[in-house]
Simulated scan of single mutants.
Amino acid sequence: MSHSRNDSAASTSGAAAPAVPGNRGVVVRAKDDLRLAELPAATPGAGEAVVAIAYGGICGSDLHYWRDGAAGQSVLREPMVLGHEVVGTVLFPGADGSGPPAGTPVAVHPATPAPSGELRWPADRPNLSPGGTYLGSAAHLPHTQGAFAQQVALPTRMLRPLPASLPLRTAALIEPAAVAWHAVARAGDVRGRSVLVVGSGPIGLLAVAVLRRAGARVTAVDLIDRALQLATDLGAERTINARDEQAIAAVQADVSIEASGHPAGLAGAIAGTARGGRVVLVGLLPPGPQPVPIAAAIGKELDLLGSFRFNEEIDEVIAALADGSLVVDPVITHEYDLADTLEAFDVAANPAASSKVLLRFG
């Protein structure tokens, strides 16, 4: 793996623009090749604003592009700026008058829904649009460049103004919290119900926080004691080590949230859910066939529901953070200057040492 501050990165807009000192970004060029690079100027197009990025959260997909050269079925085929969990301040507003004015703190909704041929999807669920793109994603070619840079040109429709009272450091969790919020919404009304959260990484922990706000009784599962302590800090009433399969199976929760992204985690969620219950799959399992005890799910007549990204839940998350009803700060365990990107990624890749790791771009 290499780490350079002076390598050029691919332009995000086709024609190459000159690299501008002071606009550094995090670029993955290939498996094990992560670089801090000087990027082209953030030049806005129609309907775009320039945002000075303050914080970016390192996501599991960012780690997979670096360590594996792919995130699920999205294979890295060209250099790509990473990052989609970002917040910042509008530096130059949209020239067409769209979007918030200069100086406004904003979160970013990183999705762009789009069709693809004749494939169908529900109109009220744009997260399922087959041709959709996401910042920092290699799902399409050319790749959708991400926002791990000091200045980024972004469509104004992606920008969500933030209240001045909400610290940008906390706001850096808005995007992953929206993923967790969407997963909990897929579970239905959880008030007063028992919920098993399998996997207490950042998404699982944020699901614990969202569930507690919704009035659920939460049991959290993980292999790592540190993660289980964080789950307790966020409101889990009980924690179980993932090695204790009997204790997990004995929970018999009304709902389970599978957030580990591992077949064993899904097996535990199926075992730990009561007959007639519901299992929401938000952890991204590896592509291809997986060894899963489907017969048990059939015999218990469980509802198995996928959960993919989010839609307008991001606005509900912002409101809940602003009024203090959603508490997420314990999920942030580390914060690094942009110059220390390599160390930040190393720490983020070690779940025994970290939960959510932030890069500070300002």
Rank of each mutant, 00 (worst) to 15 (best):
S2M: 07
S4R: 15
S8F: 06
G22M: 03
D33Q: 12
A42K: 02
A49N: 11
A52R: 15
A52N: 11
I53M: 02
Y55L: 06
Y55D: 09
G57P: 04
C59L: 03
C59G: 03
G60W: 06
D62K: 07
Y65W: 11
Y65Q: 01
R67N: 12
D68C: 06
A71V: 00
S74N: 14
E78A: 15
P79S: 08
P79V: 10
E85W: 02
V87L: 10
L91V: 04
A95I: 00
D96Q: 09
P110W: 05
P110M: 02
T112G: 01
P113G: 04
P115H: 08
S116Y: 13
L119D: 13
W121A: 04
R125L: 12
S129H: 03
P130D: 11
G132E: 06
G132C: 09
G132L: 12
Y134K: 08
L135P: 00
G136N: 02
A139G: 11
A139T: 06
Q145T: 00
F148V: 01
F148L: 09
Q150I: 00
V152R: 00
A153C: 02
L154N: 00
L162W: 03
P163Y: 12
L166M: 07
R169G: 02
R169P: 03
T170H: 12
T170E: 15
L173G: 08
I174N: 09
A177D: 07
A177Y: 07
A177T: 15
V179C: 14
A180P: 03
W181T: 13
D189H: 09
R193M: 12
V195N: 11
V195Y: 04
V195W: 07
S200M: 08
P202F: 10
L205P: 01
A207V: 10
A214F: 06
T219E: 08
D225Y: 02
L228D: 00
L230N: 03
D233L: 13
E237F: 06
I240G: 14
I240D: 06
D244M: 06
E245T: 14
Q246N: 07
Q246E: 13
A249E: 13
A250Q: 14
S256P: 05
I257E: 01
I257D: 00
A259P: 01
S260Q: 10
S260A: 15
P263Y: 05
G265A: 01
G268A: 15
A269Q: 06
A269C: 08
A274G: 15
V282S: 12
G283I: 03
G288L: 11
Q290Y: 11
Q290N: 11
V292E: 11
P293E: 11
I294V: 15
I298L: 14
L304G: 11
L305S: 06
S307G: 03
S307I: 08
F310N: 07
E313F: 09
D315P: 02
E316M: 01
E316F: 00
V317N: 08
L321Q: 14
A322Y: 02
D323Y: 10
S325D: 09
V328W: 03
P330C: 07
E335N: 03
T341P: 05
A344D: 12
V347L: 06
N350M: 08
A352D: 14
L358P: 10
L358R: 06
F361P: 05
G362E: 14
